[in-house]
Design a protein around this nucleic acid. Structure first.
Lengths: 328, 328
DNA sequence: TGATTCTACGTTATCGTTAACTCAAAAGCG
DNA sequence: CGCTTTTGAGTTAACGATAACGTAGAATCA
């Protein structure tokens, strides 16, 4: 049994489809009893407006594209929840896209989202380089970036203040007396990594010190484990480790365990992001907590404004908060 | 600048829109040089077929709805990745819906997905009761349930063999000499919980024993922590704990830490699901590993078959695999 | 009472794409 | 050379919803 359409209801009610449309959309235009009859029949036939037809006519799909590098990274699900929370309140749905693999994949996804005529996109941690990114973004009615900026007219952005976060991490370790500090820097190509390093450089300069070593790696547990092993084996005297994210920090914890390094006694480790996992490992991980749910909400609100043609704010910066636990 | 449409290309190329449609869809119907010219112009104008118009015409949206109780639960992102992997290979995209709250919300989501004219739905751990569930499912062209079954003509299903999994968990503890076993049973209303308990009952019967205590709780870390505290405080002599899932088990680990119970010396704990977290806690958690990515892939493949009207299999059972680590 | 405004609808046309059909010219064939 | 087939197109109509406009009859007003 295929879906009922307006004309089915119209026939059953002895009116024109237009009248049904008006009644079901609460735009009046029919007498009280006719309206009641129409609503009744619509209910009986389980009428569901065809979003495709509506979208075609109105040039609005009611869908927003959400692009994340990897949903399996616990950083993103919470952002998605934040986005969804606001989106649903405003009648939008999420078309979720996982990038996972290559930047080529990002291009493909753009084409798909364009075809779907999404009303906007929220793009988390885009890896595409500036030029193609801007080009891709221009073909959307509205766009918001998380963790990246472009000119305001191209897209809004929600930024995490990695500089201050990394700076706080370093100060925290320094205040605890750590002087020989290594850095697990995450993906070399990533902006987030660069900014953290900038934040660190500033503080190091103030302190008249510098990092003992910096190693790049993939932003997951294994990457952190490998990078920290490399770093710690080459620089045994390191007593503080600043990690790109919590996953990397957990990897470092594993390495310490394997190498017999006591945390925090021999080595203080601090992560970034504040994912739930950070509380579950032992020692509990100190971290710079980022309010991911809020980021999602803010991003979606900003997108809504852009969809409606307002440009109240084009950039919001979220500041990570130091949570000192047992790893430092 | 709004999007180019077929007629724009047609005008520029001096042909009819139909010809452009045929050429761009590789259905021939134009000479080689005309075809080349059309493709060239389409590229220059950054033409993207309007999926709404196409969907309206063809009654296919190219979208599948995915419903999960909570993406923040690490069990689901991997399933989603599996689904997406297969979906993208076949030209489908995912409309992701998080339930989070109430069963009412599930009903709302159904209406939305119906309106969007999704080509099918994959519904994970549906909580709706039988009648409304069946009613909801009937209005889709194709549906696959994960963790739930209904009559085969209503929906396919991917089931996890909780009975055997729970049975294996119990045998494992028993073989290690544990005789006073408690159960953290997860949500009382959940099918998964019931089935696990059935599996346990069978084995307990064979062994001529029974569980010391069974406590229900929410399926997250905190639920596990609270439930295990309740259980352990009331039954100090318990030496084995079978948990509904890994999150619960991690909660139990926390409780043990707080109560000074040594794991696995005093108490063996085993989880379920095999989420990454299980490997990161200390002691590493023994668990019944479920291949979530495969579940996603299998589910999507099954959905594809149903979308195409085939009904090769209507049910697949995935068996959890015991992974013995340090918590037992 | 005649003019005007409302009420409660109906008609038409359109969004972008494409299936089905049509058709003229070119190519192939005996 | 006349006939059929193929090639390279164009035309029409439809998918379902709805904006814009039209209209007959009832109600209101001067």
């Amino acid at each position: 049994m295929s879906k009922a359409k307006l004309s089915d209801i119209a026939r059953a009610a002895g009116v024109s489809p237009m009248t049904v449309s008006r009644v079901l959309n609460g735009r009046g235009g029919a007498g009280p009893e006719t309206s009641e009859r129409i609503k009744q029949i619509a209910h009986e036939l389980r009428y569901r407006p065809n979003a495709l037809a509506r979208g075609l006519k109105s040039d609005k799909s009611g869908i927003v594209g959400v692009i994340v590098p990897d949903i399996a990274n616990p950083f993103f699900p919470e952002i998605i929840r934040g986005i969804e929370n606001v989106a649903l309140q405003h009648g939008y749905n999420l078309l979720l896209c996982n990038v996972v693999e290559s930047p080529d994949r990002e291009i493909d996804l753009m084409r798909i989202l364009e075809s779907q005529r999404v009303d906007g996109v929220i793009w988390c941690s885009a890896r595409l380089s500036e030029k193609p990114l801007v080009k891709a973004l221009q073909s959307f009615k509205a766009a918001v970036l998380v963790n990246r900026t472009v000119e305001p007219q191209i897209a809004g952005s929600i930024m995490i203040d990695y500089r201050s976060g990394a700076a706080d991490a370093l100060k925290h370790l320094w205040n605890l007396g750590r002087r020989r500090i290594g850095v697990i820097a995450g993906p070399a190509a990533s902006r987030g990594s660069m900014e953290r390093l900038e934040g660190l450089r500033t503080v190091f300069a103030d302190l008249g010190a510098e990092a003992v070593a910096t190693v790049y790696c993939t932003p997951d547990v294994n990457g952190g484990a490998l990078a920290s092993r490399e770093l710690l084996e080459a620089h045994g005297q390191v007593d503080g480790l600043i990690c790109y994210n919590d996953l990397n920090a957990v990897g470092a914890l594993q390495t310490c365990e394997a190498l017999g390094i006591r945390v925090p006694d021999d080595l203080g480790i601090i992560g970034f992001d504040g994912i739930p996992l950070a509380e579950f490992v032992r020692p509990k991980l100190s971290t710079l907590h980022v309010d991911k749910y809020s980021i999602g909400q803010l991003g979606m609100r900003m997108l809504l404004e852009r969809i409606e043609g307002k440009f109240v704010q084009h950039s919001i910066v979220v500041r990570p908060q130091l949570i000192a636990r047992n790893s430092t």
